Simulated scan of single mutants.
Amino acid sequence: MILGIDEVGRGPWAGPLVIGAVVLGGAQIEGLTDSKKLSKKRREQLNILIRDQAAGYGLGWVSAAEIDQIGLSESLRLATRRAVEQIKVSYHEIIIDGTINFLDGTSKGQYVTTMKKADLLVPSASAASIIAKVARDSYMAEQDDAYPGYKFSSHVGYGTAVHRAAIDKLGVTPLHRLSFAPLAKYKAPVSIDRSTNLADKATETVSTETTKKIGDRAEDEAANYLVRHGHEILERNWKTKYCEIDIVSLKSGTLYFTEVKYRKSADQGGGIAAITKKKLSQMKFAANYFVQAQQITEPDLLLAVISMTGNPPDVEEFIELK
């Protein structure tokens, strides 16, 4: 069987990079082709069929913050590894769309064939391109609520005139890739103290992000982490006048209600230290309130917390609460 791999989101100014990986096995799905040649409606129809009928599939996500930190080339390799790690069925060959073996140097690299237009010619690669694009487009559409005015659902992060105008008016968000040339001017300015003695090493002061921006970035990375581990994000920052939930997700029939806790460093106790008995009670109330509001019958519920540290924020620990 063939494991097909394709990427979506290499060129946008904002949003994650997503790699799709699919083993179709014996599935015969009509209409598979390059996702860019399909209408949105048809892509979404095929996405459901692929997820239902394929022998195995995976999605590898790399956030904008990670792209800025490690660069696009390494991000492509990282996203590919993350996608392939989710494939639990056997296969005898890996076909990657394009000319670069993103698994080179790994144990899987020897099984790779690179192929131009594989997403058009190889059904499993076509399927990979479809599930990756639908997942990324859906994620970007969700960002309209988090970042009103940017119209992410329309341009999904690409450098359109509308997107450029929004950035000029509103500035950048944690979704933006500041390492990309068109956005380089928005990087935090670096100032050098030139009043020091020439024998001393020049010191650089980098302006710090606001706590809110770092918190937003932490929640973005937490959501990406859950998606990479098989969750479907249902809600983010779900709020009522009585309660709020950071992330609601679904995995294997279980509803997860996840609290995101960020600390600058683990020396401050880590985010999980903030889950007190009172906070746990509030989380239980919010989960039950959500279930009632959505009229979900006989739900399988699970509370969880993601502890984030550092800047850019990184997942320190994911714990399912009993």
Rank of each mutant, 00 (worst) to 15 (best):
L234K: 06
D119I: 03
S39A: 08
K278N: 12
E317S: 12
F318Q: 07
A64I: 12
L72R: 04
R82V: 11
A165N: 13
D68E: 09
E316P: 04
D200S: 14
P182H: 07
I130F: 01
E44V: 00
T211F: 08
I247F: 02
G98H: 06
S281K: 15
G56R: 11
A128P: 02
P299S: 05
Y256E: 11
R82Q: 13
S249T: 04
E85A: 15
S307W: 01
T211S: 13
Y289G: 00
Y57N: 11
V305A: 13
A199S: 13
S63D: 11
V162T: 13
V172W: 03
A223K: 06
Q282A: 14
A14M: 02
Y150K: 01
E317C: 09
K251C: 11
F102S: 14
S249M: 01
D267K: 15
G9L: 03
R51K: 15
K169F: 09
F180D: 09
Q110P: 09
L46Q: 07
A287P: 04
K277N: 15
E221L: 05
T196W: 05
S249Y: 00
A127V: 10
H229T: 12
H231W: 06
R177C: 11
I70F: 00
P312H: 12
D220C: 06
N47Y: 15
K88D: 04
S281T: 14
A266Q: 13
R43F: 08
S129K: 03
I214D: 02
A27L: 02
F257I: 09
I167N: 07
A223C: 09
L78T: 11
D144H: 09
G253Q: 09
E316M: 11
S124G: 08
A274P: 04
G310S: 12
V172Y: 02
D145Q: 15
D34N: 02
E93I: 05
L38T: 06
G171L: 06
M140W: 01
S73A: 14
P12K: 05
Q28I: 13
E259D: 14
G56I: 02
V248R: 01
D193E: 14
S153M: 02
P174L: 10
S39I: 07
E30Q: 13
S124K: 00
T297M: 08
D68T: 03
A293V: 03
A118Y: 01
I296P: 01
G171Y: 05
A146F: 06
L303V: 12
D220E: 15
E259N: 04
Q294E: 15
L301S: 08
I245A: 01
K277P: 00
F285K: 04
L321I: 15
I100D: 05
A274C: 07
P123W: 06
T276L: 07
F318E: 10
E316T: 12
Q69P: 00
I29P: 03
A64H: 06
V22Q: 01
G25I: 10
Y289E: 14
E93N: 05
A266L: 13
Y147L: 08
V172D: 10
A54W: 01
T208S: 14
T297I: 14
L103S: 08
L121H: 10
L120I: 09
K187F: 00
T276W: 00
V172L: 06
K241H: 13
S281C: 07
K277Q: 15
D144I: 14
G310R: 14
